[in-house]
C-alpha cells in the first residue's frame, strides 16, 4: 500500500491510456504555470492559500522521493542576500518586505520542483511538442533532464574553487564584495560547462537521428501497455 502511494504521478499516468496520460501531464503543467505566476501576481492576502496549496505539492513531491534540499539551501542563501541588501539600502525597517519577496520566490519555485519530480521530462516534451515545434520541445525536455547533472556540476565547481582559496565560503559571502568572486570563479565556469554539455547533447541527439522525421513517435515504458 505504502509503495503504491509513493509511486510518481508518471506511474499513475502509465496506468491510463496515452491520451488521458497526456491530458494529465498537460493539466499538471498548466497548474504549475498558474501557481508559479500567482506567486508573483497574487496579493499578499492570498499568499497563505497559495502556500497551503504548495504544501500539498511539497508533501506529494517528497512522497515521490523528490529532494528539496537544493531549493531550501538556495532559498536560505537568497534570504540572507536579500535581507542584507534591504538592510544596506533601506535600513532595518523594511526587512519584512525582503522576506515576503523571498517567500514569493519560494512559492514560484516549488510547483516547478514538484513538476520535475512527478512528471518525466519526456512527457513534458511530448506535451510541449503539441503546442510548439518538436525541436524546441526537445530542448525544454532535455534541459529539465540535465538539471540534476548541472546541479552536481555546480556543487563540484564550488567545492573545487573553495579548496583553491576562493573567498566563497558561506561566511565570506556575507560580504557583498565577494559575490563577484562567486560569479567569476563558479558561475562562469559553470556556463562554460553548460555550453559544452549543450554541444555534446546536441551531437548525441543528432547521432540518433534527431530531426530526421517531422513527426516522431513516442516511447512508452512497457507498463503503459499493460
Amino acid at each position: 500500500m505504502w509503495a503504491k502511494r509513493r509511486q510518481p504521478l508518471q506511474s499513475k499516468i502509465s496506468s491510463v491510456n496515452d491520451a488521458s496520460g497526456l491530458w494529465l501531464a498537460a493539466s499538471a503543467m498548466l497548474m504549475v504555470t498558474l501557481l508559479s505566476s500567482a506567486a508573483f501576481l497574487a496579493p499578499q492576502s492570498a499568499l497563505l492559500y497559495l502556500a497551503l496549496t504548495n504544501v500539498l505539492l511539497l508533501v506529494h513531491g517528497l512522497l515521490c522521493r523528490g529532494n528539496i534540499g537544493g531549493i531550501l539551501r538556495y532559498i536560505v542563501l537568497q534570504l540572507g542576500f536579500t535581507l542584507l541588501l534591504y538592510v544596506v539600502i533601506h535600513g532595518g525597517q523594511q526587512l519584512h518586505q525582503g522576506a515576503w519577496a523571498v517567500a514569493r520566490l519560494l512559492l514560484a519555485l516549488l510547483p516547478g520542483w514538484w513538476l520535475t519530480v512527478v512528471i518525466k521530462p519526456q512527457w513534458i516534451g511530448e506535451v510541449l511538442a503539441k503546442i510548439m515545434p518538436v525541436k524546441w520541445a526537445f530542448v525544454v525536455a532535455a534541459s529539465i533532464n540535465l538539471l540534476p547533472y548541472m546541479t552536481s556540476e555546480l556543487r563540484d565547481i564550488y567545492q573545487l574553487q573553495l579548496l583553491r582559496g576562493a573567498r566563497i565560503a558561506p561566511r565570506q559571502l556575507l560580504n557583498p564584495l565577494n559575490w563577484y568572486e562567486l560569479a567569476y570563479c563558479v558561475i562562469f565556469p559553470l556556463f562554460v560547462q553548460l555550453l559544452k554539455l549543450a554541444q555534446q547533447t546536441a551531437t548525441a541527439a543528432r547521432s540518433r537521428h534527431f530531426g530526421s522525421h517531422p513527426q516522431p513517435t513516442h516511447w512508452r515504458d512497457p507498463r503503459s501497455h499493460q
Binding site: Q122, R208, H209, F210, G211, S212, H213, Q215, T217, W219
Partner: peptide, 13 residues
C-alpha cells in the same frame, strides 16, 4: 527503454 528507443522515435517507428 526510453533511452534506447530515442533513435526509433526520431525515425517514426
Amino acid at each position: 527503454g526510453a533511452e534506447v528507443a530515442f533513435a526509433l522515435e526520431n525515425t517514426a517507428v
